[in-house]
Amino acid sequence: MKTLVTAILVAVASPALAQTQSVPPAQATAAPDPARLAVARELADKLIPQGMYQRMMGGNFNRMMESMVGSAADIPVRDFAKMGGMSEADVAALGQTTLREVMEIYDPYWQERQQRMMRSMMGEMGKLMATLEPKVRVALARAYAREYTLPELQELQRFFATPAGSHYARSSMELMMGPDMTQAMAEAMPEIMQQMPALVQAAQAGTKDLPPPRKAEDLTPEQREKILKLLGSKAEQPAKK
């Protein structure tokens, strides 16, 4: 279940950071136009006001995560089994038993444990995002400076100066974690889980022509020595008789 929580967390949090990647990395090496960047910085300050991510993690995002994990717990165990590669016959034998039904037998405090774990994770995530917020703001400004022309940026600036624009700027990001999005993500969990086996199969198909990774016993003495040096360790010396 911890893996499920982490996977959901990453899936939901990634779009918030991905907003800064509207251009390919190759283009991001060149400095944006200074005039456009100056205006874009003002826009980024309005779109990501101070403390925004910590507020999101402490309230809306926490509720979204609890709702999504709760929805995932009501998905039949057989859907998880498909992700693990269980045969169709074995999957069919599992019936409609849900993850929640199984977990409540293993752990009578399962639901309370999940909620406490979620709140603790969100608290730490809020602290992390608070430290990342200035970097995200800078990256967003650079992305806007590349994506929009100076007249377009100035038009956005004028819009953000209006009551409606100001309201939009300070609330648009947080609305993505609001109750409507929370409900939509929770409702989508069964469909997401049903598609997971296909995603896993696609990933496996994409690498099927590659040799399997080496195991420790497959390494030559030279390769072992190289790894030990990279990790700052020394090769074991044979025991003296």
Results as ranks from 00 to 15, higher is better:
Lys135Asn: 14
Glu155Val: 08
Gln157Asn: 12
Met173His: 05
Thr207Met: 14
Phe80Leu: 12
Met57Ser: 12
Asn60Ile: 04
Met52Cys: 03
Ala7Trp: 00
Pro76Lys: 00
Leu175His: 07
Ser14His: 03
Met52Thr: 04
Glu124Thr: 14
Ala184Trp: 06
Leu219Lys: 01
Tyr168Val: 15
Leu153Glu: 01
Thr149Ile: 06
Ser120Ala: 14
Ala93Val: 12
Ser67Lys: 09
Phe160Pro: 00
Gln115Arg: 12
Pro211Gln: 13
Leu153Ser: 03
Glu191Tyr: 10
Ala216Thr: 14
Lys241Cys: 02
Arg116Ile: 07
Glu236Gly: 09
Leu37Asp: 03
Met129Gln: 01
Arg113Lys: 14
Leu4Met: 11
Ala30Asp: 07
Lys46Ala: 15
Tyr144Thr: 02
Met117Ala: 09
Ala35Glu: 15
Met52Leu: 15
Ser67Asp: 09
Glu147Phe: 07
Ala239Arg: 15
Arg36Asn: 10
Met118Glu: 05
Glu152Leu: 11
Thr6Ser: 08
Leu175Asp: 10
Thr182Asn: 03
Ser87Cys: 03
Ala92Glu: 13
Leu9Tyr: 02
Pro238Val: 02
Ala169Glu: 01
Leu9Trp: 01
Lys234Gln: 11
Ala143Thr: 12
Ala40Met: 07
Arg113Val: 03
Asp79Lys: 01
Lys234Asp: 05
Gly70Val: 04
Ala30Met: 11
Ser172Pro: 02
Met117Asp: 00
Leu219Arg: 00
Phe61Ala: 11
Met181Thr: 09
Ile8Ser: 02
Pro197Ser: 06
Glu104Asn: 13
Arg41Gly: 05
Glu155Tyr: 13
Lys82Met: 10
Ser166Asn: 14
Gln195His: 11
Glu217Asn: 11
Arg170Asp: 08
Gly126Leu: 07
Glu187Gln: 10
Glu42Ala: 11
Ala130Trp: 03
Ser120Lys: 13
Gly206Cys: 03
Asp33Met: 09
Ser14Asn: 09
Gly178Ser: 05
Asp90Cys: 04
Asp90Asn: 12
Arg214Glu: 07
Ala38Gln: 06
Ala38Glu: 06
Glu88Gln: 12
Arg113Thr: 12
Val138His: 09
Thr220Ala: 03
Gly70Thr: 08
Gln201Thr: 12
Gln114Gly: 02
Lys226Gly: 00
Ala235Leu: 12
Pro197Ile: 06
Ile48Gly: 00
Ile105Lys: 15
Ala93His: 13
Lys46Cys: 11
Met177Val: 14
Glu217Pro: 05
Ala73Met: 10
Leu43Gly: 00
Thr97Ser: 04
Gln27Trp: 13
Ala31Ile: 08
Gly126Pro: 06
Ala30Val: 09
Gln194Ser: 09
Ala130Ile: 04
Asp74Gln: 10
